[in-house]
Amino acid sequence: MIELSRVAKSFGKNHVLRGVNLTIPRGQSMVVIGGSGTGKSVLLKSILGLVTPDSGRITLDGADVREANRDAFLARFGMLFQGGALFDSLRVWENVAFRLMRGATKLPKDQARAIAIEKLRRVGLKPETADLFPGELSGGMQKRVGLARAIAAEPEIIFFDEPTTGLDPIMSGVINALIREIVTEMGATAMTITHDMSSVRAIADRVAMLHDGLIRWTGPVADMDQADDPYLQQFIHGRADGPIESVR
């Protein structure tokens, strides 16, 4: 279980997170929604230690993440980045097998490649893709490779940063379905940040809405449409009128 307690982070005068409290139960898929620039990425990166919060506490299974052994801590995570963040200089299979070929549990090259190809197949890519470079792939294929890399070491926790940004609606649906299937079959804890409502409905067990540096509403996805929070309702229905300023 991941717990955030009064997490705050500012960049200069910009107070991005103002005291976020959020619990992500083990084995659940939590989707954090919110407008652009509301600090969703900062929230996710704070958990991973890529951004250091100014105050507050983040725990994983009760232990403060700042006190954890860094390698052991990160080994429990997989992450799909917004733009894929694939390494341009490495072939697709080397990207997918990156973690498998390094560190204490390093696998032989042939074995790592075989696992990479299996993971590529799992996300709907043919084995021929393995020897291409990321620059030779379409946006949707890059997302799939990113997804294969995120699940390659079979992590307990997977983070998805805007998984459908830049994709057409059909490819978005494919990625959403893949994420849901993989999270369910791996039994992983998942945290997704997005502003795509089709992703929310496809991926989420629980939803949290981040607005103005605070969690505005959180609950099961089934309760989202009936919730009486005006901010949440404006966001999920994409209305220009409401308490959220349309010019930010």
């Binding site: 860094r70 990160l74 963040a85 341009d88 390094r102 560190g103 890399r149």
Partner: peptide
């Protein structure tokens, strides 16, 4: 470019 495209963050999350 690696930093801008989050490849540096990706390295960190891959324990590198």
């Amino acid at each position: 470019t690696m930093k801008v495209t989050e490849q540096i963050d990706a390295l960190t999350t891959l324990s590198t």
